[in-house]
Design a protein around this nucleic acid. Sequence first.
DNA 1: AACTAGAGTGAGACCAGATATCACTGACGG
DNA 2: CCGTCAGTGATATCTGGTCTCACTCTAGTT
Lengths: 146, 146
Amino acid sequence: MSDVDLIIERMEMRGHRVTASRRRVIDAVLAQAAHFTVDDVLRGARKVGRATVFRTMKLMLDLNLLCRILLDDGALHYRLSTRGHHHHLVCRDCGRVEDFTTCDVKALVRELTRSTDYEIEGHWLEVYGRCHACRLLKTAQEAAVG
Amino acid sequence: MSDVDLIIERMEMRGHRVTASRRRVIDAVLAQAAHFTVDDVLRGARKVGRATVFRTMKLMLDLNLLCRILLDDGALHYRLSTRGHHHHLVCRDCGRVEDFTTCDVKALVRELTRSTDYEIEGHWLEVYGRCHACRLLKTAQEAAVG
DNA sequence: AACTAGAGTGAGACCAGATATCACTGACGG
DNA sequence: CCGTCAGTGATATCTGGTCTCACTCTAGTT
């Protein structure tokens, strides 16, 4: 099943109509890079009204078809997401993103529960770094200069 | 040393003047609850210009006197912070915050480095839950209804 | 004490991301 | 075929934040 079909199916499953406008937004979202802003989608879905783009993206967020990704400067971007709970490893240079699910927070949750007496219900984790390609590039540049 | 003095000292140490306007912003920040928006500070520092409030808070952010805290709805709030790297455990009901530093991400970093070949440089972690008081309140309310 | 460079200020314009309003459209069930 | 209601889009508005620019204040220099 293609991404488009999956998205459409999930929307219909929840009783939402897949109109021409929504379809255009979905197409524009699928055409984006690893992560993007609403504005990027707006530019990619020309004939669709601003409000509808925001509404459709919020809907996709609610249906877990999109997720948000926090850049290290505090900006929130969007990203396609067809799975559930996961985190992001973002390359600070090129913006490339790897999803990962192995956040072993059990130990942390246990300790926090004990020390603070909170009932812990969720967490948000983003990891930042530099991907292999960008690291190679950087060392090559440094070698050229030095 | 009081919080005010600490903040003033750190500002002066870095060559920034502590003017009357900045002083008013600092006072307004110190008067806030666990976390707050720029707008809250704006309301608390009446005679100071909007731009100056933003500038001063950014300065305090740069000097690690403030930190940002990501609420689970994606909103970014500010919080007083006199220490370095730490994370937040936020109560979803009352907004109370506990700081903690024990984020044992070493294992995660090792695994991600191995599996993705990124050089990992940083992370952002927020934990959400319900504090003891809010839990008590909730169970009391449920008992009253049921 | 007067001078001056430069940090800091504030009113206001502007910008981006997002929501609210409201008249309209168009798809579907009866 | 009609009524209903989800969805649409133009537009206004809001919020969080930056930019600009003329101004002020202050610390250091003569």
